[in-house]
Amino acid sequence: MTATSPTPTAAGLTRPVGPAAGVVPVALALIRRSLLGTVRIPATFIPMIVMPLFFVIAFGGAFSSVTLLPGFPTDNILNWVAPFSVLQGASFAGFGSAFGAGRDLENGFFDRLLLAPSPRLALILGALGYSALRAFVPTVIVVSAVLLTGATVPGGVLAIAVLLLAAMGVAVSAGLWGLGVVYRTRTQRSGGLIQVGIFTAMFLSVGLVPLSQMEGTWLYWAARVNPITAVLGMARSGFVGDVTVDAVLPGVGALAAMIGLLGWFAWRGFRRLEG
């Protein structure tokens, strides 16, 4: 896209105006930059890989006997905790983007982005695209680990695809939440606040046991209204049985609602940066 509109000057000459930039190339360039940053400090991969694996091992090992509870949907604990661990890892990926934006805001790199005539949307999409891309890492790692233990995924390839979709949605949602906070605080020190939000959303849900097992407790009511519950239901559906429309639709709806709301929150924060 090149648009040059001539502008009259004092001398009556025209001063050329530089081109405007498109959304897609700018977003892609920003994703590329984030990727470079990750690849060049390989140590950043370690928590991305270790954390979801640790979740699988810790939850799967410590609470393996929850499957013995009457009415539990599966008898293999790994099938139960793997999707939860993947979503945990995905939320961490979203946090990573927000943390990166906080660093850019603190050291002034963000000014470089704001100074460019690129569409503002592209700056947010770049950060989110990277989050979504990173959601592949926990999905691949955890699913491979689970398959290596000899467990089977009843829903097959479709189950893994649905899990990946859920993971990307969670990464984008967490990223939007984090960006919204970071755009307002302009510092990566707000990382603690972002994590508390993500942690609360992920845990006040059906991570350990299904809703039916927590009836009568406060958590039941919290988990029922938490959109993550529907997303977890979607992510798990192909791991405890066949992928069903009844499980996937509410999850997709919850993700859309979260992305819409948090997207508004992030966008409002972004507008405040320019003022």
Binding site: S65, L69, G207, L208, M214, L219
Partner: peptide
């Protein structure tokens, strides 16, 4: 405390195992 609250609610039925 948060972990305890969530785990206690999630796993309340396991005490009967």
């Amino acid at each position: 405390l948060l972990i305890a609250a969530v785990n206690a609610a999630s796993l309340s039925r396991t005490v009967d195992l």
